[in-house]
Amino acid sequence: MLYSETVLDHFANPRNVGEIEDADGIGEVGNAKCGDIMKMYIKVEEDVIVDVKFKTFGCGAAVATSSIATEMIKGKTIEEALKLTNKAVVEALEGLPPAKIHCSVLAEQAMKSAVADYYKRQGIDPTPIVGEIKECESCH
């Protein structure tokens, strides 16, 4: 299993690990049966993600994708954050082994799921904004 230096760095020194006590949105995707769970917490002020934290149960790639995804959305508006794709996550990590691409999908979904939760708490239907959050295809 060949990981890039960036993946190993994010695994060894994950950014934004932890929880946000008074989070405005919390998203959890994946399941333990498949070996990956990602939980993302966001703090939102005037449509800007001012803080983000994550907890991940999973492999090196799962930790690294969560870590870099939090870096990529922190300080961004929700609109900008929602443009984050798993491809961008993979690129930012300088590639992932083929078997680990699903981890980048989980990272994108964890972020979207947290945003959806944020909207729900506002009484807003998140689906038109965030879209359907499908379960990871490879988890079936």
Partner: peptide, 10 residues
Amino acid sequence: LGIEGESLLL
């Protein structure tokens, strides 16, 4: 329990 093996190996 609560750990994924590959993370442990790394």
